[in-house]
Design a protein around this nucleic acid. Structure first.
Lengths: 213, 213
DNA sequence: GTGCTTGTTGTACAAGTGTATAATAAGGAA
DNA sequence: TTCCTTATTATACACTTGTACAACAAGCAC
């Protein structure tokens, strides 16, 4: 009854790919972009280096897949926060803010993934495409909420521009908070973001009322 | 009269360091973080690889020096925009905005430097220190202008928080514009940033009036 | 001129990189 | 069971990387 345990286990391609993607995320978090190589990922996944090449074109391809995967997770978390909030555009916008500034969104490890992905955007058209899609979805959701608030409160605003600015502010706060949590706290970021909504609700940003030409 | 030209020229250490720093900036812009090695920098500077090691501890040290150098340049450009603007806080703030969204500040090459520096912040305490200093200076200038506007217009605001939010928005717009200039234009970024100032001048962001506890 | 300091080169080496390859074996199908 | 597909391993190769080192020479002091 000496069960000979197999030297390795076979996985379905998509299962193995997901495991490799998760290993890549851990490597980026632990070693950064420079320390994330095919071999490092393979070691993290307890797998031979050759297997990585069998499933992905290279380390860049793997990072793109990781961004795609993690990006979808984040979008789902933020989406869930909006969906479970009361049926009111302002409440949903505030729920979005709350979800943005707590884990797992507010997370240094996540920034590490984002940074190495951003550094690929310029050189790789495929990467650029994924980045564009994720950000477009991200902005569309906020733009819809802003437009709905304006409609309910009966004032005009260029929701597209307003959402662009709001997205940038959230992004900037998130980035700087992940980079260096000592300069200001997440409570500060929350106050700033909520104050922006206060101002929007009060009919602020009148300068953005006219549709851009 | 066959002038034997010297095989190489000797530079003062600080001169050579600056040349290497500029070569590093070019490498980061052209090849990205992954393609910026001691050898690549040396080649770009028409210098032997060994010389880089003679002046800098390694490639990371060089990137930090590059960030420090370029960061000071940018601070100077933005500072000059503020200083040459009319003696009015609002005008100065708007001049700051204008300078932020045109070259050489709005520049993909600059983002490449910033990205590779950000990716070092987490791991290296020295890098963290430089980053902290540059951002503190950056925010202090904006905070001063915001406070002056509030004083002149006789309303209360937490200038610290307001400047934090404004900085984040400028950062976010700048980042996304450098990453992908096709989604929105610099004119959009300008409108958004100026609208924020409009709102500030009109006494917006009243939610930030109370000093944080 | 002469000598000295040190910026600079060229080379060498060990370690790490991506990738290709043949050999292996896990696990489902028949 | 037997066969077959292919996920997986192990190894090898050519290349790049950071770093160390001795030799060299530019340019200043004298």
């Amino acid at each position: 009854m000496t069960a000979v345990e197999p030297r390795f286990t076979r996985d379905q391609p998509d299962v193995r790919r997901r495991k490799l993607i998760e290993a890549t995320a851990h490597c980026l978090a632990e070693f950064g972009h420079a320390g994330t190589s095919v071999r490092a990922v393979a070691a993290k996944a307890n797998v031979s280096p050759g297997l990585v090449a069998h499933h992905f074109k290279g380390i860049d391809d793997l990072i793109v897949a990781t961004y795609d995967h993690v990006g979808a997770q984040i979008a789902e978390i933020l989406g869930a926060a909006v969906d479970t909030a009361p049926d009111d555009a302002e409440a949903k916008l505030r729920a979005f803010i709350e979800a943005s500034f707590k884990p797992p969104v507010l997370d240094r490890d996540l920034l590490a993934i984002w940074l190495s992905f951003w550094s690929l955007v310029r050189r790789d058209p495929g990467v650029r495409k994924v980045h564009k899609k994720i950000y477009a979805d991200y902005r569309r959701r906020l733009e819809g909420l802003v437009a709905e608030i304006a409609r309910a409160r009966r004032f005009k605003i260029d929701a597209h521009l307003a959402a662009l600015g709001f997205t940038a502010m959230l992004d900037g706060l998130w980035l700087e908070l992940c980079l260096d949590p000592t300069t200001f706290a997440r409570e500060d970021a929350l106050r700033i973001a909520h104050a922006w909504v206060d101002d929007l609700v009060a009919g602020g940003f009148r300068a953005l009322a006219v549709k851009r030409t």
